[in-house]
Amino acid sequence: MRVSRKYPAWVSVLFASTLLATALFASSANAAEDKPFAEHKVVLQISDNDPSKQTLVLNVAGNLLKSYGSDKVDVEIVAFGPGVRLMFDENVNKGRIGGLSTEGVRFAACGNTLTKMTQALGHEPALNPNAVKVGAGVVRILELTGQGYTLVKP
């Protein structure tokens, strides 16, 4: 027997809006809610062209997780300027980014930088699926520091 339930249209709209808002909020607004038991909140900045900085910032993130435990520390890596190359899908550190992401580390790529890079390349660079495009990297850092995150630039 087929059961058919009918809801008013506004319920569907409300449901969809809630999902969308939740997704946006979770990805960029107050990510700390992903880790309600976090005792430390850290935002790591990468804005250098130096490849060794890519390794370093990932090492720092890994060390924070190792020291405090993934539930007790909330880490977001924000890239802008030349540092955005870390967030490219082709980046050789893609595997490490995937590993850190499964432990709750978030990755944010500066939208302004990506726009400039798109102009320079002639096409938009493919972004790592674990990275989220934010409006401006530096603004994202200010948002996070305003929420009590400690800024570290390795």
Binding site: N49, D50, P51, Q54, R85, L86, F88, E90, N91, V92, N93
Partner: peptide, 8 residues
């Protein structure tokens, strides 16, 4: 060179 991580 390593993709996305090479120097100029």
């Amino acid at each position: 060179e390593p993709a996305g991580a090479a120097e100029r």
